[in-house]
Design a binder for these strands. Structure first.
Lengths: 362, 362
DNA sequence: TTGTAGGCGTTATCAC
DNA sequence: GTGATAACGCCTACAA
């Protein structure tokens, strides 16, 4: 380990300076004459020096405060997974000198979001991980954090135009295409297909629009003659009667409806409806491995769920922040996690995955 | 970091001994009186001490030699991925004090396997990662390594009964069920289905049998009346004429053949055949993201490929060995990687994945 | 602008 | 059996 690996000391020796000086140029702390700096840089280059990250973290002996701004999972169970990923990362990486503080807001309440984001800002963390589900309200915070040079990473919702270090999450358009592929594959003969948007705030609509666009694009490619009829509906569960009524009307007026593509994590509501209506011929493709969806996946009412490793998003987010803060690594600006196709037969491997090994490789 | 985290020094202080003594009981190096040992163990328990892995690796200052026994990817391109995973892991983990030496054998030549395994054994590594594709010839080595207390981890081919530290790889039976599900979903109306075993040595047959069993089990469940006709064929590409002839006969005698399930990574050969025969109505589900398969996946002749992250298998294998050797962690005896369903629309995320961060999470 | 000394938590090698 | 003490590679004072 020491034989082959070049250390700061070795560089110092070659450059005929002290380790302190090498350290200074390594970290751009200034206070080094141009001449010496050049020489050292040269040697570093030639010897392709790689710092020992462990020694680095050990020596620095600093604990970085990371703040996570996330929705309350008791309000929407989707958010349980990211939270658990964050906590796992904290556990795994604590020894590298980090601590994570969670700021939890109500995903259906903008004010709660603003309040928690303010709290977080007051806390003055060394790094921030957040899911900025409210676009407009987020921007001022991004500006402030940028000014204060606090690095922030965004996950789940893509807002990259204002200085985020990195975005981790989904590629909605592509996932729409994938959903379309699944339906199309399951239904080689033309039929009617319903795209259902359920129960989403306008703030999230960008996702859904992208999904729908991807979906339609796929069919435009494979079915230029429009033999498949694609219809769409927006549903809201706040009014259950209207919810059922709308679906009743749709189904009654569309006898050849064979498939429903649900763009949100609420596929279980459609499944529930179809089960009650005993419309077992209609197949569902939806999103997200939340418990209610899993029930219907197992019972066969939902055919596939598209999943984008929400736990991994949380884990990866913290992990990248650690790479950046602790190890001073360069980190990718964009990280789309795989679009996993999940069905009853491979569900085990995706749910409650205790590991992310795949991720390790980076 | 130091405030909250208890160190060996703290334990020593409480127990009124020196750090050396604590270290001895921590590592069972003996030479500690029962009485003191009890006391220290007690304190460790109470304070739920967690060793600082970085300091550990730094202090130990040992470089572990890991040997990897893997098939030559120029003979079968499937093996390129594990190799690249191993190399990535080596790169990522080198700083933890490991070096990986590869022993590459010809997967179609038992003698080559034995020869390389012997070489490896002579090398006396601190840990071994291997894909034991020849069962019988492997056992003597397992015995020797066990006697010599050299830990070994097995991937891709499951031979766990002789002391392997861990198995990383595929769940063949389950993947057969998954393949069946995909075909069944794509073909709601009963038809004939062909299971094709292509070009495999007997040594690997266990995999294929398991896949076929899982496949048949699925249909036994969903189609108890046997409306779907499941036929099987074993093909060998060594004789191209016989290969085509067999398929010709099958297809001619089975007009309602709609789907072919290829249990090996050679789906592209079937795709090639079907393309030439212009039998575009027959759909293929196969295994493994090797370049030739990807071509046909993109052109639509192959509908789905089932993938079990071969790069991740290599990466994870080394990674687990490092956990065991360097960090003295407990590692799971069995690790099935997810059964990924890959199609044209989500292919990007699985091929040449530069990252495993997920792995990090464990 | 530069060098030195001490410390991070652990391991390993000595004496005692 | 036990306890100092010097590494490991890097970082951070502080001194020069």
């Amino acid at each position: 380990m020491n034989n082959r690996n070049i250390r700061i000391k070795d560089i110092a020796l070659k450059a005929e300076v002290s380790t302190g000086t090498v350290d200074r140029v390594l970290h751009n702390r200034g206070k080094v004459s141009e001449k010496v700096k050049e020489r050292i840089l040269q040697i570093i280059e030639e010897s392709n020096y790689e710092p020992n990250l462990m020694a680095r973290a050990l020596g620095a002996n600093k604990t970085y405060q990371i703040a996570a701004l996330i929705p309350d999972y008791t309000v929407d169970s989707y958010w349980k997974a990211p939270k658990s990923g964050i906590e796992k990362a904290e556990k795994d990486l604590r020894q590298y000198g980090i601590a994570v503080k969670q700021f939890v807001f109500n995903p259906y309440d903008v004010n709660s979001y603003i309040e928690k984001a303010s709290e977080l800002t007051t806390f003055e963390p060394d790094g921030i991980l957040l899911s900025p589900i409210f676009y407009r309200e987020t921007l001022p915070f991004f500006q402030k954090w940028s000014r204060d040079k606090i690095p922030f990473i965004v996950f789940n919702t893509q807002i990259t135009e204002f200085g985020a270090l990195s975005y981790i999450g989904q590629d909605s358009y592509q996932s729409g295409m994938l959903g379309a592929k699944l339906l199309h594959y399951g239904q080689p003969e033309p039929c009617s297909i319903l795209i259902a948007h359920i129960d989403e705030e306008i703030s999230n609509a960008a996702h859904l629009i992208k999904k729908e666009s991807g979906f339609r694009y796929y069919f435009a490619q494979v079915d230029p003659d429009n033999q498949y009829k694609i219809i769409r509906v927006e549903l809201n569960r706040a009014d259950p009667k209207a919810f059922s009524k709308k679906l009743d009307d749709l189904i009654d007026s569309t006898p050849d409806l064979k498939h429903i593509f649900v763009t949100t994590s609420k596929a279980y509501d459609i499944a529930d409806y179809l089960e009650k209506r005993n419309a077992t011929k209609i197949k569902i493709v939806g999103y997200d491995l939340i418990p209610k969806n899993l029930d219907y996946l197992n019972s066969g009412f939902i055919s596939f769920l598209i999943n984008q490793n929400p736990k991994g998003q949380g884990y990866f987010g913290i992990s990248l922040l650690v790479d950046f803060l602790v190890f001073k690594k360069n980190i990718p600006a964009l990280k789309f996690l795989p679009l996993d196709i999940v069905t009853k037969e491979n569900l085990n491997y995706y749910v409650d995955e205790e590991d992310f090994v795949g991720q390790l490789a980076d």
